[in-house]
Simulated scan of single mutants.
Amino acid sequence: MRTLWLCLLLCCLVWPEARAKDSPRAVWTWEKPSFAMLESPRVAEEALSFFQRKRVTTVYLYADSFDGRNPVRDRPELYRAFIRRAHARGIQVYALLGSWYLHTERYVLPRHRRAARAMLAGVLEYNAGAAPDERFDGVNYDIEPHLLDEWNDASRHRLLLGFLDMTADLMADRRKSGQSLPIGPAMPFWWDGITLEWRGARKTVAEHVIDATDYVALMDYRNRAEGRDSILSHAQDEMDYADKVGKQVVIGLEFNPGEPAKLSFHGMDEAAFEREAAKVEGAYGDRPAFGGFVFHHYLGYRRFVRDPAPNDPIVPPSR
């Protein structure tokens, strides 16, 4: 009997950590590191090994033009090779769209709608010409209208309606392609505090976005799980609505330096992060709407866990 009680106690102590480890984990991977993985098999293998060490199950890999290059259009064989490698290791690859370099926040404006649709068309055309084990598993787009200079109290409803119209166009283009890869945006948690009417329905922006897409990656940038102004408190409305309509929410977390400190796990240690992640998983792990975590971003997360990428320009070379 004493042995049984000791076993039960041990299970209780390790259960939260075990639950956190079971949650799906993704990483936003932006232009330069994405292209480095595509162009160098050595870099790709090292990155994929890192993802496996850290239980990352999905990579959001940049898939648009950057610095005069557009390999998803001009050198698709690079994506084919990388996605094959990732799939062989059990790692999914989502096409990451949206870029500071391209100023894609403008895509919510009607005059830039063609560019927004072309962004997704490149991925759909790539997938149509790729073998099953070489195809993207999904799409994540990061288009943030609040980055526009014209964002203010007077214009925000117009710009958010532009985001919703752009989103509807992207989803319609996916349907027309006959493909079924899931598409979802990076979405700020505070969009659940803005209500507007769109297509005859008055809802929060967050609810409209969840209705229109397959999932959302919620930019829930806080460094503690519980209490006021926390990861769980800011995700609650989106989780409740996603459960109601049968969609998923991936909880986005930040690892890069920034102000105020509460926005990021930067400056904390990995064990402290895992404790907070375990609390989120403990609260949401059994809910259908919970899609795990996505980390911002690849290089920042690697620095955080003290396992920097060999080609990271911020980390000095070892002597």
Rank of each mutant, 00 (worst) to 15 (best):
I83C: 01
F51K: 05
R69L: 12
A44G: 14
Q92Y: 09
P16S: 07
R55P: 05
F35N: 07
A131P: 04
Y94L: 05
L97M: 10
V108A: 04
G98D: 00
S40K: 13
A86Y: 00
K32P: 00
A36D: 14
H112F: 03
R114Y: 09
L124R: 02
L102Q: 07
N127G: 03
D67W: 09
W15P: 05
G90K: 00
P16T: 10
A63P: 10
E17C: 15
R135E: 01
V93W: 02
S99T: 05
K54W: 15
R85H: 04
D74H: 14
V108C: 01
G68K: 04
A95V: 06
G98C: 03
A95R: 06
H103I: 00
P33C: 04
H103D: 07
M37I: 02
T29W: 10
R25W: 12
R106D: 01
R117W: 02
G98K: 01
P110N: 02
E134Y: 12
R113I: 03
P41V: 14
D67A: 15
V14G: 11
Y79L: 06
L10Q: 08
Y79R: 09
R113G: 05
G122R: 10
F66Q: 02
R53W: 04
E45H: 08
E17F: 15
A47F: 07
D74R: 13
V27A: 11
A81Y: 01
W100G: 12
L61I: 02
K32N: 02
R25D: 11
P41H: 13
V108H: 03
R85Q: 10
R114L: 14
D133M: 01
V14T: 15
V27T: 13
A131N: 08
E77V: 09
R80D: 05
L78E: 12
F66E: 04
H87M: 01
V14E: 14
P41E: 12
L61G: 00
F51V: 08
A36N: 13
F50C: 00
C11N: 11
S65P: 08
M119D: 11
L109D: 00
D74Y: 13
E105A: 08
R84G: 08
E39Y: 10
L96V: 01
R19Y: 09
Q52I: 12
Q52C: 12
P41F: 15
V72N: 11
A128W: 03
V27Q: 13
G129E: 13
L96H: 07
E46Q: 13
R19G: 13
R89S: 12
W100I: 04
L96M: 11
G129I: 10
R19N: 07
Y107A: 01
C11S: 11
R19H: 13
V123P: 01
E134Q: 15
L109N: 00
L10V: 15
S65G: 15
E39P: 04
R106F: 00
F136C: 02
G122Q: 10
A18Q: 14
A36C: 11
P41D: 14
L102H: 04
